[in-house]
Design a protein around this nucleic acid. Structure first.
Length: 421
RNA sequence: GUGGCUAUAGCUCAGCAUGGCAGAGCACCAGAUUGUGGAUCUGGGUGUCGCGGGUUCAAAUCCCGCUAGCCACCCCA
């Protein structure tokens, strides 16, 4: 048979191997614990959705929709997409599942894979995992602060305490249009001195001018009008309340007037958590904000909401570099090493042991020495070995791998001898 | 989508400038130990040199294309 190229994983995705999986479980369990502590209930939504939901959910002109979306047509000709984030799906499920009829707000959390077709590098994958929190059906600024507190509590819980919280508000549909006009008016005279994309932004999406990182566009930022000076009364009050609540909770934050969301239905609070000292935007561990216009953009009844998405890939990466130690339990506590081809007996012995402890059988046709070495490598706590003679008498040699002590035990005695302390 | 760096054993990497038998350490396998792990010693290379083409008597080495990883952009978790 001609040798052909072995089949590898597709670009930008990866396996979480057993050794690494323990660390992930720590991050996931912390997320679930924190979510429950704040009264959030778990929800799961499909990773495939109608393309429209996704496109309208992330903004049809956004990068996420135009160049990063995994889209495909199914066998029935339906236009589908892999979700690049969870919020639109959760909002859809909130209405479809009747959660809008229950107590408000609905506090929901979700964990799962998201997909974006962008160029892979460390901390950025085409399939990545998010911990997602959404509080839908409530407009209180207290929920904004709560969601930020949940994000922080999670990061704290997994040992990431050196954090920077960037915070801003972007107003709402009442006050933002007027502010955008001011911003446009301010930038128009400089338009020719901006880089090409920003020239376009002046008319189309002036908010994005504020977080442009191209050097030639920087000089104009400092004197640009700030949204915080042009908020309508309700937005100003909400903005003040959020900050007061964060202060009261002892949560430090850094006001960043250049932190924006480029989409119309994002409103008021926006925030991002970074590891302390980080500069790159690709290091964001969690980010979120309020999206009072999203439900309407999806053609559901207008409903406020706020939430965040945290990146499991980046969080576990950081946990590992911060030296988070995860005790890896042995795959099996007891390893049964039969002599020769005493397969049926070995299986029976293992079955008896499994009433009290995990047990695996070494069926490989190799020397006892090799099997012992393998048992040692797997950090088994006990080895159970027996010869044909032992098997006939329903006896085994029970060896404590830590002390090297070895005793002869009859089959019926095994569970008792191996009882967990 | 743009620019740059990289790709040799399971892992970390040397070899490449100046073409000439594919290497080291760790890991792995076997034995010493007459079937009982860890320590030690001995032996074993387990490889389409990322893939495809080109130049050459000869290519891991030089040239071209592709793929993948990493880095900086774009953007995001």
């Amino acid at each position: 048979m001609p040798k052909t190229e072995p089949i590898k994983a597709v670009r930008g995705v990866r396996d979480i191997l057993p050794e690494e999986r323990g660390l992930w479980r720590v991050a996931e369990q912390a997320a679930a614990r924190v979510a429950h502590r704040f009264g959030y209930r778990e929800i799961e939504t499909p990773i495939i959705e109608r393309r429209e939901l996704i496109e309208r959910g992330v903004g049809e002109d956004s990068d996420a929709a135009t160049k990063e979306l995994y889209r495909f047509e199914d066998r029935g000709g339906r236009q589908l997409a892999l979700r690049p984030e969870a919020t639109a799906s959760v909002v859809r499920a909130y209405f479809e599942g009747g959660l809008n009829q229950g107590p408000q707000p609905a506090r929901l959390y979700l964990m799962g894979p998201m997909f974006r077709y962008d160029r892979p590098q460390k901390g950025r994958y085409r399939q990545f995992f998010q911990f997602d929190i959404e509080a839908i059906g409530g407009s209180s600024p207290a929920l904004d602060a709560e969601v930020i507190e949940v994000a922080r509590a999670w990061l704290f819980e997994v040992g990431l305490k050196e954090l920077t919280l960037e915070l801003n508000t972007i107003g709402d549909s009442i006050c933002r249009p007027a502010y955008l006009d001011l911003l446009r008016a301010y930038y128009r005279p400089f338009k020719s001195r901006l880089h090409s994309e920003c020239q376009h932004r002046v008319e189309v999406n002036p908010l994005r001018l504020l977080d442009c990182k191209v050097p030639q566009c920087q000089p104009f930022k400092a004197d640009a009008p700030r949204i915080t000076d042009h908020l309508c009364e309700p937005c100003a009050l909400a903005w003040k309340t959020v900050r007061q609540l964060l202060d009261a909770a002892g949560i430090e934050y850094h006001l960043n007037p250049y932190l924006v969301r480029g989409l119309d239905y994002y409103t008021r609070t926006v925030f991002e958590f970074y590891p302390a000292g980080s500069t790159g935007s690709q290091d964001a561990l969690a980010s979120g904000g309020r999206y009072d216009g999203l439900a309407a953009a999806l053609s559901w009844e207008s409903t406020p909401g706020v939430g965040f998405a945290g990146g499991l890939d980046r969080v576990t990466e950081l946990m590992a570099t911060e030296g988070e130690q995860v005790i890896t339990e042995p795959a099996a506590e007891v390893i049964v090493l039969p002599d020769g081809d005493l397969v049926a007996e070995a299986a029976e012995v293992a079955r008896l042991i499994r009433t009290v402890r995990s047990a695996a059988v070494d069926y490989e046709p190799r020397s006892l020495r090799a099997k012992m070495r393998a048992a040692d490598k797997q950090q088994a706590k006990w080895a159970v070995l027996f010869s044909a003679e032992n098997a006939k008498q329903h006896k085994v040699q029970l060896r404590d791998m830590r002390t090297g002590e070895q005793v002869e035990v009859s089959w019926p005695e095994l569970p008792e001898r191996l009882l967990p302390d």
